[in-house]
Nucleic acid binder design. Sequence first.
DNA 1: GATGAATGAGTGTTCATTCAT
DNA 2: GATGAATGAACACTCATTCAT
Lengths: 209, 209, 209, 209
Amino acid sequence: MPPATPEPAARPLRVREDPAVRRQAILEAAARLFATHGFADTTVRDIGDEVAIKSGSLYHYFASKDAILEAVLREFLADLGTATAAIVSAGTSPRRQVTDLVRHAFTLMGERPYWVLTYQNEFLRLAGQPGFEFVAGESARIEAAWVAALTASAEAGDFAVDVPVAVRYRLVRDATWTAVRWYRPGEELDAAALAERYVAVFYGNHAAG
Amino acid sequence: MPPATPEPAARPLRVREDPAVRRQAILEAAARLFATHGFADTTVRDIGDEVAIKSGSLYHYFASKDAILEAVLREFLADLGTATAAIVSAGTSPRRQVTDLVRHAFTLMGERPYWVLTYQNEFLRLAGQPGFEFVAGESARIEAAWVAALTASAEAGDFAVDVPVAVRYRLVRDATWTAVRWYRPGEELDAAALAERYVAVFYGNHAAG
Amino acid sequence: MPPATPEPAARPLRVREDPAVRRQAILEAAARLFATHGFADTTVRDIGDEVAIKSGSLYHYFASKDAILEAVLREFLADLGTATAAIVSAGTSPRRQVTDLVRHAFTLMGERPYWVLTYQNEFLRLAGQPGFEFVAGESARIEAAWVAALTASAEAGDFAVDVPVAVRYRLVRDATWTAVRWYRPGEELDAAALAERYVAVFYGNHAAG
Amino acid sequence: MPPATPEPAARPLRVREDPAVRRQAILEAAARLFATHGFADTTVRDIGDEVAIKSGSLYHYFASKDAILEAVLREFLADLGTATAAIVSAGTSPRRQVTDLVRHAFTLMGERPYWVLTYQNEFLRLAGQPGFEFVAGESARIEAAWVAALTASAEAGDFAVDVPVAVRYRLVRDATWTAVRWYRPGEELDAAALAERYVAVFYGNHAAG
DNA sequence: GATGAATGAGTGTTCATTCAT
DNA sequence: GATGAATGAACACTCATTCAT
């Protein structure tokens, strides 16, 4: 039943959240949309809808739609770079490092699949685009860590089959990271279990000891 | 045998006059643009420019931009399905079949990288989109062939490491097909050589005799 | 009385005018709007409304709103430059040339006031703007013609009062061209009569013989 | 005489603390921006930046962007009206009055060019706009003073050339006030010298006695 | 009095699609 | 078949204005 006296046109409920929280919410929403619809097919209105603000208000947080993508990629690559550096500088055995890299990848794909997908889907297009040079730079640093660990493991004689490291790196990287397209945690195998099996295949054997 | 009546000499030399030829040229151009710029970032004008006709004329060949994408994917999947079926019904050994599947994949990535990339890039977005149900259907048929070959090979004891076939299939598929992002023929290793090394790693050993 | 049977939703009446005619109509409408509301306050939708096409269709004729302004100014300055050159190279006396320049200005202000106003209103803002260098260039050429005629007339002793030519030029130019803000033909004095009186004041006397 | 009680020394040196001072600073900044970029192309952010406050705070001083323009024009026209009235009611000779009006105009253009330009640039557009009727009203009052002085001077036989006063007024007004587009004090001729030459040309002779 | 966050209406521009010629 | 002109719906982005803090 409607109220007897009509309510005055309800003023919009301005929640006045913490700006830093809202900024992060925008990035989360944007990453999800970029990953599922593609950057070009995602409109700033779509992003605004997801965080319940008008598209114009996004421009208080980011200078442009491109800047949102940039922030997503910067945060993603910073986190990935930090974790990668931690793994390869831990002083553990090469195979341990490779295993940790793969396991961390599966964990990350489980936790933040949209960020990983956004990175993968936009990587090629962004190569050489002004303002996005950091993508190639940071990617190269991470690639170097993987290649170093694989090289050390090969020199230690860990692999059942001998192939050039450039070939092995790509096989390992592609098999691992492409899993983001189908891997969802909570299924039969968790990140650690999957990583272990992947690594076993990569090496052609199970870890000694 | 040449026609009895000589053709008039003055006819202007218009290449690609055959509608079927032009239709195919449109698909080639579209696939290249879809792969390099993305479907959403490719305009029908771009496609028209590549084949030297105005965008409006594209609509004599295809009902819509979506229809061009559909035709690209239909042709790609039809060819891939045919080749896949031929390999797995050749009566060869399981490992031979797996090797042929991988080798064929590398060959195809070398010959038609843009078609492969278009398929990969749009696959997720197209899932469940009306008119594109054939993509999932055809993909499932091809997947079944790969899984069958891998299962047979596992049952034959070919693999050094034992993992569930669902896991192995995805690892093999992802490692193989993602190579389209970097593999270009004419480099150090050709398709056959690369395929051989990939298969060796997948199996954890080199093919017997 | 409405017809008994409802008419089918009337398809838009596409007049299919001569494109060159429509292009010119766009320029006329744009000049009028730029002059009366200012360039910044004129929307491309306003322009489209005046020529009965949608704003998007304007982009078949011009690459941008700026390009419309550029075309207006180019046409205006080309016409003005041609007329100016014809006057000062006619071999007439200096005072005759000055009189003709002023008379032509009044005629032009009567015939195309909006073009003159657009030029005047946007001149300062456009100085140094990329793509609009021709405005300053062409303006300088026209100014040189006026200064030459005034200088020759001063050397001939035509002026009752002696002032530096730079001062006189600006006085004459400003007094003459600013008339576009109020002069409309069909009032008491026509262009020729007004020009004659202006010139008489500029010279401090009436023309001899 | 300095105040008896010394001011506290530690007070932070905040210039422009007085609201009236800040209000005036806003008008100065706004006039400069309106004159150089145009009213439509000036944002309230631009104005705020110039006086180091956020755009929202401008609304403590003015009700709207239009109200800022209105205040600029009101102050400008009030000052100009006062000065004009003082000149024409001084009891001096008609030619003296005309000379003083022109000299005051040049002085004003030197001191407050942006106010003059804002007035000129927005005058046409504002005609008949609600809230801006005072512009036409005040302008008419000033025009009447110029016309009266010119009429009296003509009746005194000061002019070398005889033209209708309506024509002469416009010529004199336009030549004089349009100088704001190029006149900057500190060049060869100062306001008084320029005014003298302009008046000499307007009269067709130099002042007697 | 000052601010930052938010809005809503609008801006120039793009583009897949249509269709008379 | 081919085209150029036209459209309409969308797009990223801007900005004067409001208001709780």
